[in-house]
Design a protein around this nucleic acid. Sequence first.
DNA 1: ATAACACATGCACGAATGAGTATATGAGTA
DNA 2: TACTCATATACTCATTCGTGCATGTGTTAT
Lengths: 117, 117
Amino acid sequence: MPYLTEFFKLVSDETRLRIVVLLAQEDLYVCQICGILNLSQPKVSKHLSKLRDLNYVVDRRKEKFILYSLNLKDEVIKNLIQDIVVHIEQYPVLCEDRKQMKDKELFLSQCRTKLPE
Amino acid sequence: MPYLTEFFKLVSDETRLRIVVLLAQEDLYVCQICGILNLSQPKVSKHLSKLRDLNYVVDRRKEKFILYSLNLKDEVIKNLIQDIVVHIEQYPVLCEDRKQMKDKELFLSQCRTKLPE
DNA sequence: ATAACACATGCACGAATGAGTATATGAGTA
DNA sequence: TACTCATATACTCATTCGTGCATGTGTTAT
């Protein structure tokens, strides 16, 4: 059960919940997350590192960039996050984040170089 | 969304998660919770008061005793707790709590007076 | 009224946490 | 090699949090 409480503690921080929900919808680079959430890079990086240290996300380098993806192992947790995404209209902040994510140009402008792929 | 993060913070504490999962299965008196979890009364009471202040549980007095019940409003949260209960075999601590709960005599012995009903 | 019991709360303390700023690392490019 | 950019980390600080112990409140029974 430490897995459950550990995860709950992580997503009890609004920023981290927003990141997790974003990653549940799409793999993202750090600069994209900063752009979408409109938060400073160190802040985002620090939260990502917490998630990474505890293995809830994994990262892989792509040239100059680092791509993060979700890495949930517990079925209950996976269901939870999926359920949040399904009911995302109920959560204005998460909903807004999703819109920002879809608006490619906006968050791309955060990164001064063009992204891989 | 504050509702989500607020709840996650509450259940990021192991004791509170155990209490919430217990109450998801059965309404309980404080002394019963103490007995089942084998924790001091002030500790249990304090956690209950946090849950109560934020309206995730409600209490009603029955004679000398106070009965607590769960009071979840968000569908996603309700699903989550139900899902934990359904998969409870995966969480040894919660599983053990459930056994203690079913073993009436054990936790009744915690209270020196006989319970209502 | 007093005592016993169920429960709540106040206080003190150490530990963990999130934020901001500055700086370090590491890859690509000229 | 020097420089730029993407990302990570170190440091400080204020705040929050969980715990244990003692005590307060409200109810029942004698």
